[in-house]
Nucleic acid binder design. Sequence first.
DNA 1: CAGGATCCATGCCGATACTG
DNA 2: CAGTATCGGCATGGATCCTG
Lengths: 156, 156
Amino acid sequence: MKPGHPDHTDSVNLQHERCRPVHEILSLVGDKWSVLIVRFLGQKTMRFNELRRAIDGISQKMLTTTLRNLERDGFVTRTVYPTIPPRVEYTLTDLGRELLVPVAALAKWVDINRERIDEARRRFDEQWSEPAVRIPAAPGSAGPRHREQPSRNRHG
Amino acid sequence: MKPGHPDHTDSVNLQHERCRPVHEILSLVGDKWSVLIVRFLGQKTMRFNELRRAIDGISQKMLTTTLRNLERDGFVTRTVYPTIPPRVEYTLTDLGRELLVPVAALAKWVDINRERIDEARRRFDEQWSEPAVRIPAAPGSAGPRHREQPSRNRHG
DNA sequence: CAGGATCCATGCCGATACTG
DNA sequence: CAGTATCGGCATGGATCCTG
């Protein structure tokens, strides 16, 4: 990565060196179950149905799929004991445990700021449920506004 | 961890107090464009088409949708200047800027560990392209194995 | 027990056409 | 310029049935 001259490097950096990977990882663990599984495995090694029961709501298919992806990406190890009945254990790898650090940080941030987000949503949603438009209409001014009233609400 | 009576508090904490929110936020900004937009706006206030041109690949619809969601969640501010032609500016809120911190941390982690993930994937994928199964078969042992050969590959 | 295979609903996202 | 409206493809995820 050496474009030489630094014009447009902001965009270039943002697009190709920092953001693409970000979205990539967010897609990696940003699906419905990955983080949940990783955090459970962060506590202890677990078997398939043990995870299944623990997670509550996950289907067998999604548990399999998600575990397979996590294994592929190097976050969990799958160990088969060829007994009867079979026994399969899933464990976090070092990489998985390390991933847990920034993910936990993000989790903590969400925990802390959840209320602010919810409040922002309430304010936003209230705009649409209000009866009509009221614009103070300062005489002659053309200052910035903040949304008027669209033809339709986007949530029903 | 706590040998007393463990109540099942582990699972409960994981499910309701920590992980659901995590997935929630990951869904929030874990979509295809949110992080990219947030990081662009982290550099400066931008107008609609300015963002559109900067991001390269985003459709007008997705830019609108993603911006609307970010606004709803309180991460960006939308300001309309009722001029002709219209002028709409998007800015990160304080909340948005704060979100950038843990997200940037995650981004950094990915940057650093990208190679390890890629290598894990290569190793994983190679298993499927190998011609046949070879199990050392330690005499009489029934130790753990690591995947044999399924009927089909999942990325065929 | 630990999955594989299949069918199907939903939602994300892109492409296109049109508006104030 | 900054959107809205609409259609359709494709991936995600759930439910069900079946196997070793």
